[in-house]
């Protein structure tokens, strides 16, 4: 039986993001948001599979580049020398946990579920945790107590915000668990965490990382993502 995921998600990934992720051209930080959303969203999973199928068709249609003379034999030697890793992939399913707040790709970066996050205070009970990725873009978890506003922020470049717990609201609408907001440079918004459970979001941005642990906190803008 195919177990279906939650169907309450209203704000989805764009075609551009899904195609770039399928093609393998997204920075790691954005890929983490895509993988986390797709883990919760059957609709985007289906669209992603379409984009991967396009990649397959492109590969199948591709010109060939002759392999080296002894290539097949070399590959068979490679196969013989590789450890049989039949067990490795199935561990992903063992780790599947329907009760977790964070889907597995995010747990891999955090080193556990929500309680394992090493938060740093941004003041006013707002907290963040920057996750380690390649440098071209950055991704962090934000913790915003219910009812509190994220101060105004415009951004340079693109910003993806996905809700993992609670909800937030801005001019564009209400965003609850699984929803993704795709914001661009022109957009000025003031998200407010909705009443109820405190809001935890995953935020990826290609603007420079502003909250480095090396700066004294007092010198940092209140929130600058």
């Amino acid at each position: 039986m195919k177990k279906t995921m939650t169907t309450t998600i209203k704000h989805h990934l764009t075609d551009d993001l899904l195609m770039a992720y399928a093609a393998g051209n997204l920075p790691e930080a954005f890929s983490l948001v895509v993988a986390t959303h797709v883990s919760l969203c059957d609709e985007c999973r289906a669209r992603l599979m379409e984009y991967e199928a396009v990649g397959g068709a492109v590969l199948d249609d591709a010109p060939e580049c002759a392999m080296a003379e002894d290539s097949f034999a070399a590959t068979m030697r490679l196969i013989d020398g590789m450890p049989a890793d039949e067990r490795i992939e199935t561990s992903a399913m063992v780790r599947h946990d329907g009760n977790a707040v964070f889907p597995q790709p995010l747990r891999d970066y955090v080193g556990g579920d929500a309680e394992a996050v090493r938060w740093k205070s941004l003041g006013g009970r707002i907290r963040q945790a920057v996750l380690p990725t390649s440098k071209e873009a950055s991704v962090r978890l934000l913790y915003i107590p219910a009812g509190m506003a994220m101060p105004d922020h415009g951004h340079k470049g693109m910003e993806l915000t996905m809700v993992l717990q609670g909800a937030f609201e801005d001019d564009e609408g209400l965003y609850a668990r699984g929803d993704v907001e795709v914001a661009n440079e022109e957009m000025e918004h003031t998200p407010v965490a909705a009443p109820g459970p405190d809001c935890i979001c995953l935020v990826a941005t290609d603007a420079p990382l502003k909250f480095s642990g090396l700066l004294p906190r007092i010198a940092q803008p209140f929130i600058g993502i």
Binding site: A23, S39, H96, P103, T133
Partner: peptide, 22 residues
């Protein structure tokens, strides 16, 4: 694609959780 990300871009590739039925 994943090999390319690993070898050429030297990045990790976050993958979606597999569907529960595997």
């Amino acid at each position: 694609r994943n090999r390319r990300i690993d070898a050429l871009r030297k990045q990790r590739r976050p993958e979606p959780e597999d569907l529960p039925w595997g």
